[in-house]
Structure formats: structure tokens, C-alpha cells
Design a protein around this nucleic acid. Structure first.
Lengths: 208, 208
DNA sequence: CGGTCATGTGACTGGACGGTCACATTTTAG
DNA sequence: CTAAAATGTGACCGTCCAGTCACATGACCG
């Protein structure tokens, strides 16, 4: 939703603006992010900025669009034909692609994280709209399918575990990026596999 | 850490101030919470406020202290002698007491939640300090004990699952308060029990 | 050249904020 | 009754913010 002018200016300038904006929104939640800082960092006048974007929200939505497109590249291969995978395999791929995205685009991940953390603020409702419910529904569908295929046991509260799977997704991501990000690669697979195994079999000492 | 004056004024006034402050910090994260709004809602002059508290952080820390004391009442009975309980029973009690606290003190819970959501902001580090690591360590200890007792299987990444248990705690809480809070009581136990069962045995369709 | 149109600019507006301070009022005590 | 101590007050300060606007600069074209 940027104005036409934004797409007429030289590409390097556009990129510089995006870069500064990404850095700003990665460092500060929407309400705290400052247009003043962005224009100062880019080295353009404030009036110029408002010839490119309607307002702060306009810029933010545009960045989220970029982020969404970038994320789609990671997720799309996995979700090509979800039906043919085992539920836990599918989950594993989704978690992996999510972590890979976060590792390779840490600022994008920071922005997404800050957005999710602002649940309850007006910007959250405005941006997310029905998307939350959609993601929830996706996992509910996957879970239901998995139950009919016998991969997941019957009788569980599907809504609850769809919710939990989304929540633990971000938790695993945080654990990984905060605690063991340094020696990447090696431990990533081990972490994910342990986690998926936990989702399958739980923590109990009983024989698997 | 309020000033002496705060404890000299009439108790009703103190309570009114606390009430307004709790409402403010329950509705807005620390940075967005406004002293102006609080004093306006209480109906006192701004100068008066600054005779009670050093600054905004002073007030916030005081509220967190009140919250901590209230929470301790819920958690203490459970944690009297954690050694003698089965790990999953203990977890169940902790989750239950956490939810009970949140249901009976929704504003306190909102403040805590907003604080946790502001991870990365300066106020978070200042307030939480080492407490995060402490909570983490507690669960790591519990998990390690559970492993030696054979209640949890050996070979798991204790740090990872301590992290996950904390994260899923808040997730279950959110699911409960957002989705099924209306018909309280009934479904609470069912939700918790399903969740604990999941922690034990996982989601897989394999026989339990 | 001249004129039009796109782009660039930064001072400015109105508002919110946390925090201060000189002063007013009330309470306490001698 | 008076003096001192405690408490109350709101105008004010400096700062930051999102967003505006009158104007400047430069490009393109006849």
C-alpha cells in the first residue's frame, strides 16, 4: 500500500528505506517504532517519507507483506501436498522451515515475534484479523486428518492441541535461537527430533 | 519501594491508587502505561503521585511485589514438599494453581502476561533479572529428579523441556482463559488432565 | 527558454509523556 | 494560637512523537 512515488524512486533508496524500517521494527514494537529515527537513519527528510507512505501503519503493513512473501518461500515446499505426509513428519518439516527462516532472516523473525507479542494491542487486531483463526483452523484440520489416519489418538481436544502446537512452535524456536543458536546445524536436528518425539510419545518413563 | 508518605495516607486512597494503577498496567505494557491517566482516574494531582512513588518504575515494581505475594498464596501449598509427588502430579498442581490464580485475579494475570511479552525491552531485564534463569533451573531440577525416579525417560535434553514446560504453561493458560473460560470449573479439569496426559504419553496413535 | 509535474525538504502543529517545583492547604504539636 | 511539618496541587519543563504544509529543487517536454 505504499504510494506510487515509492516505486518510482531509485531502487537503492527504496532498499535503504526498507532496511532502516526493518531494523526499526525489529528493535521496537509498532507503537514504539519511530518514523523520526527511520528517516534520520536513512538520511531523508520526513516529508519525503510521507510521500512514500500514508502513515506508520502503511509502512508496517508493507513490511509484513514482504515478510510474508519471504516466509512463503520456506513454507511452500513443505505444504505442497500435506495429505501424503505422516502428521509428525509434516510438523517436523514445518518447525524446521520456521527455524530456518528465523535463522536466515533474524530481523524478519524479530518483527513477527514482536507482533505476536503485542496481542491485545489495536495494531495486532488490525493486522492479524482472521489470520490467527485461519492458522488455528489449519492445525485443527491437520490434527483431525491425523486422527482419522490413526497417527494421532482419538478423543483429544483438537482445538486445545492445535493451540498448543502453535504455541510450542514459537517456544522451540525461541529455545533454539536463544540457547543453542551458536553451534547451528548440528544441534538443530537433534532439538527438533527430540521435540517431535516428545509430541509423539510424551515424556513418561514408560516404554515407548 | 514507595515513599514513606504513601503508607501514611488513608488506606482507601492507597487502595484507590493501587486499583487504578493495576487497571492501567493490565491494559497497557509498562512503556505505554501513563501516569497521567492513573492520576486522572484516581482524581489526585500529579504532584501527589510523585510524593508517593519515585517514578513509574517504582510504582510498577511495587505492583509486581503485590502480585508476587498474591501468587505465592496459590503456589505455596503445592510446593511445600515437591519431592514426594510424582513429577506429572506436581506439574498438574502447578498448572492448576496458575490457572486458578489467573481466573481469580485476571488483572494481575494480565500484568504478568504483558511483562513476559515485553521480553527484550529494558524494563523486562530490570524487573526479571535472574528470576527467569531461576524458574528455568527449578524445572530443570524437577525434571532431573523425575528422570532419576524413572518417571521421565532418560536421555532427553533437560534444558529444552524445562523451557517447553514453562512455555506450554502459559499456552494452556491462554487457551483456557480465552477459549473456554465461560463455563469454568467443568472443563478446567478436563483441559488440564488432557494436557498432563499429553505430556506423559504424547499424541501418537500408538497404544498407551 | 518556459512551464508543468514529480520529488525533496524541514520547520511547524498539536498532543502526549514523565517528572519538577513553587506554592497552597491541612495536620500536628508545643 | 502559632509555628513547623506533612501533604496536596497543577502549571510548567524538556522531550519525543506522527503527521502537515508551504516552499525548493530538479526532470522532462514543447
Amino acid at each position: 500500500m505504499p504510494k506510487e512515488t515509492f516505486f518510482n524512486i531509485p531502487a537503492e533508496k527504496r532498499d535503504a528505506i526498507c532496511e532502516a524500517a526493518v531494523a526499526e521494527f525489529a528493535a521496537h514494537p509498532f507503537n514504539q517504532a519511530s518514523i523520526n529515527r527511520i528517516v534520520a537513519n536513512v538520511g531523508i527528510a520526513k516529508g519525503s517519507f510521507y510521500q512514500y507512505f500514508e502513515n506508520k501503519k502503511d509502512l508496517f503493513l508493507y513490511l509484513l507483506q514482504l515478510i510474508g512473501e519471504a516466509k512463503l518461500n520456506y513454507l511452500a515446499p513443505v505444504m505442497q501436498n500435506p495429505e501424503q505426509y505422516d502428521f509428525f513428519i509434516l510438523l517436523r518439516e514445518m518447525y524446521l522451515s520456521g527455524i530456518q527462516f528465523a535463522v536466515e532472516h533474524p530481523q524478519y523473525a524479530a518483527i513477527s515475534k514482536k507482533l505476536l507479542a503485542s496481542k491485545g494491542m489495536p495494531i495486532y487486531e488490525e493486522v492479524m484479523g482472521d489470520n490467527v483463526a485461519t492458522a488455528q483452523t489449519l492445525f485443527e484440520t491437520l490434527l483431525t486428518n491425523a486422527i482419522t489416519k490413526g497417527e494421532v489418538r482419538d478423543g483429544i481436544d483438537v482445538a486445545l492441541f492445535a493451540y498448543l502446537i502453535v504455541a510450542t512452535n514459537t517456544a522451540v524456536l525461541e529455545y533454539y535461537t536463544e540457547q543453542i543458536a551458536p553451534d547451528y546445524g548440528h544441534k538443530l536436528m537433534a532439538t527438533i527430533d527430540q521435540f517431535i518425539d516428545f509430541l509423539r510419545h510424551g515424556l513418561s518413563g514408560a516404554p515407548q
